[in-house]
């Protein structure tokens, strides 16, 4: 877990980050979200002391980091950079092996770990093991960057706009792979992004920042449906509907959906874990159809355009 208390950083006496506090439980993903220059990257870099705060404390797993040598806990903290920054004079394997080597792992163990990570990140151990970073595509490079951060099995992962340099297709494919990887599931992750979509996709908790301060922190739902200020609602305004649909699972609407239906042409079974956006997509592509939703208790509900909109409106009213 990570606890940050009253972090402040001044540049030329002007605060870049002022008085920031948050806590992230073990295994949670937190996203630092905001526009450029809002202090989110500075905040991230203060966690592993790449930038030393002028005041405030950082606790990693209940240890005050300022009482330790930064080199020590940096090795236990994975770090992924926006521009990837692989070491150009190291092979792929050597890049991945950097931290294990610093920790003094034995050669076989390092080799084994490199192979394992290459495979997990959908790179070929045969083809990619001993080539140099410049021989890889951008997407492959960032996969190696992720492998490098994960190599020594850190409990914490810091990611500074890790997908910022990639094209949308590559980005989507890497995110999909990450979502399926065990390596990421139990990690406490702090991720910096300015991409609202990405933030909602990956976050257990979002921390929205502006001008060096936290404007609101909480679950995606809280930010979306209970904005703390006009700034917050303004920040999501352009994508509001899409975000709301994507963040509302059918499970949340289940109680307001009808149990019966009038006529049936095509019945399509969907999982209650799918969101409203996906439900609409299925209805639209297939035409005159009805969705069949079965919850864990075995109960069935039926939905078409009208009933989904109705249920969503009612759901929103309960939140407000």
């Amino acid at each position: 877990m990570i606890r940050v208390e009253k972090l402040t950083k001044l540049y030329n006496k002007i605060p870049a980050v002022s008085d920031i506090s948050f806590a992230i439980e073990k295994g949670q993903n937190m996203v630092l979200l905001g526009t450029s220059g809002c202090g989110k990257t500075t905040t991230l870099k203060m966690i592993n002391d790449l930038i030393h705060p002028d005041s405030g404390e950082v606790w990693l797993d209940e240890v005050n980091t300022h009482k330790m040598k930064p080199e020590v806990y940096r090795k236990k903290t994975g770090y992924v950079l926006q521009n990837i920054a692989l070491f150009p004079h190291f092979t792929v394997a050597e890049n991945i092996a950097v931290v294990p080597r610093l920790l003094g792992w034995d050669k076989d163990k390092i080799r084994h770990r490199c192979m394992e990570l290459l495979e997990k990140l959908h790179l070929s151990p045969d083809k990619h093991y001993s080539i140099y970073p410049h021989q890889l595509s951008g997407g492959q490079q960032q996969r190696v960057g992720l492998a490098r951060a994960l190599a020594a099995e850190p409990s914490i992962l810091l990611m500074d706009e890790p997908f910022g340099a990639l094209d949308p297709i590559t980005r989507a494919s890497i995110k999909k792979d990450i979502a399926q990887l065990d390596e990421f599931k139990d990690k406490t992750i702090v991720l910096v992004t300015h991409d609202v979509q990405e933030a909602f996709e990956l976050a257990d908790k979002i921390c929205l920042m502006d001008r060096g301060q936290i404007v609101q922190q909480g679950s995606p739902d809280e930010l979306l449906f209970k904005p703390a200020s006009a700034f917050v609602s303004g920040f999501f305004k352009e994508q509001q509907l899409l975000l709301e649909y994507q963040n509302t699972t059918l499970h949340k609407l289940f109680r307001w959906l009808p149990e019966t239906h009038t006529f049936v042409q095509d019945l399509i079974p969907v999982s209650p874990e799918e969101n409203l956006w996906q439900a609409f997509e299925k209805l639209n592509t297939i035409g005159k159809t009805l969705l069949v939703i079965k919850d864990s208790g075995g109960r069935l509900k039926y939905a078409d355009h009208g009933s989904l909109i109705h249920a969503f409106t009612t759901y929103k009213n309960t939140l407000a």
């Binding site: 790449l50 930064p70 080199e71 950079l81 521009n83 920054a85 931290v99 610093l102 810091l158």
Partner: peptide, 18 residues
């Protein structure tokens, strides 16, 4: 040298000499 490469090295836990 690209400053982000140096930053990566520091972030991996290398000391000044490393």
């Amino acid at each position: 040298i690209d400053p982000s490469i140096k930053e990566a090295a520091v972030a991996m836990g290398m000391n000044h000499w490393q």
